[in-house]
Amino acid sequence: MSQAELAVDAKAALGEGPSWDERNGCLYWVNIEEKTLHTYDVAAQKTVASISVPSRIGAVVPRRSGGTVIVLEDGFYACDPATGELIFLGNPDGRKPNTRFNDGKCDAAGRFWAGTMSLDGTPGQGALYCLEPDLTIRTVLENVSCSNGLAWSPDNRTMYYIDSPTKKVMAYDYDLATGEISNPRVVAEVTEPGAVPDGMTCDEEGMIWVALWGGYGIRRWNPATGELLLKVDVPAEQSSSCSFAGPDLDELYITSARTGISETSLANQPLAGGLFVYRSAVKGLPTYGFGG
């Protein structure tokens, strides 16, 4: 078992969505329930900005033209991570009421993929959307219960996707030129009691790294064979997402959460809600920015 180390003792209610901005050496991550966007300077190993946003924030990605793009409960926004200035970009047509955005990530062409989930846990109310660089929004998958991790293979020919309650990691053939997906199949399945797959990333060898909510850590799978290759221990039961960062893309940053954990259980995991880092022997793939 490999061990992750504490980077920030944030005690976040619901830490999520780490993404690496190589332009300024910063890792962005969000605290969904506390409606906060954090900027962490990887070289200096310190938080350099924490801004409040008007509603729950599901995910953040760098924007190629500067700043970031985020998803709030009512849609996509351009956001200045230093000041919190927001510009509304759009909200998907036909979104079901009583849902919020959750995880999201950009593909290599600069499309921002982000999905939703029900606020009260009703299954099948969410969907997966794609914000194109021209700011049009497509609905790609419907009847999703808790849209979560996204990743692409190094050759961009496969997209991986997680709807957490299914406990499965799905793969789709991916057309980078059009953003179309096809040929769904299961490439990994979580069988650990009480755990579900949450956020996800991919490394340069094409292996997937999946955060286990309820599983105290990260698992690395070979999506071609389904073989479990590595367990990374995190001292937080609700590990929520992960992203490679740093100048050599060999630092795996991991978010976690405290929400829903009893005081008795928190006493045994005082670092829950922290931001953690694992020094990897394998390099990750870049975080792509939004192209619009």
Results as ranks from 00 to 15, higher is better:
Phe244Leu: 09
Gly179Asp: 10
Gly260Phe: 00
Gly206Lys: 00
Ser240Cys: 08
Leu141Phe: 04
Gln238Gly: 09
Leu128Met: 09
Ala4Asp: 14
Ile208Leu: 01
Met200Ala: 09
Thr39Tyr: 02
Asp173Cys: 01
Arg219Asn: 14
Tyr216Asn: 14
Ala13Tyr: 00
Arg56His: 10
Ser243Gln: 14
Cys26Asn: 13
Tyr253Phe: 14
Leu86Ile: 09
Thr255Glu: 12
Asn222Tyr: 03
Tyr40Thr: 14
Ser19Cys: 13
Glu180Asp: 09
Ala257Pro: 11
Leu72Gly: 10
Ile70Arg: 04
Val196Gln: 10
Ala43Asp: 15
Glu33Leu: 03
Asn156Ser: 08
Gly15Trp: 01
Gly17Leu: 03
Thr264Pro: 08
Val53Asp: 09
Val196Asp: 13
Gly226Pro: 11
Asn268Lys: 07
Gln269Asp: 14
Ser118Cys: 04
Ser2Gln: 12
Gly273Trp: 01
Thr83Glu: 12
Glu180Gln: 04
Asp250Glu: 13
Phe276Asn: 13
Val42Asn: 13
Pro286Gln: 04
Leu271Lys: 08
Thr259Leu: 04
Asp134Lys: 00
Pro81Leu: 02
Arg95Phe: 05
Gly84Trp: 01
Val144Leu: 06
Gly291Pro: 08
Ile208Ala: 02
Lys35Arg: 12
Ser52Arg: 03
Asp103Phe: 00
Ser19Leu: 04
Ala127Cys: 05
Gly84Ile: 07
Trp221Tyr: 15
Glu192Lys: 04
Gly124His: 02
Lys231Trp: 06
Thr36Tyr: 00
Lys35Asn: 14
Val232Gln: 10
Val234His: 07
Glu180Phe: 00
Pro165Thr: 13
Val169Met: 05
Asp173Leu: 00
Pro154Gln: 05
Phe76Gln: 10
Ser239Arg: 03
Pro247Ala: 07
Ala4Pro: 12
Tyr77Met: 05
Ile87Ala: 14
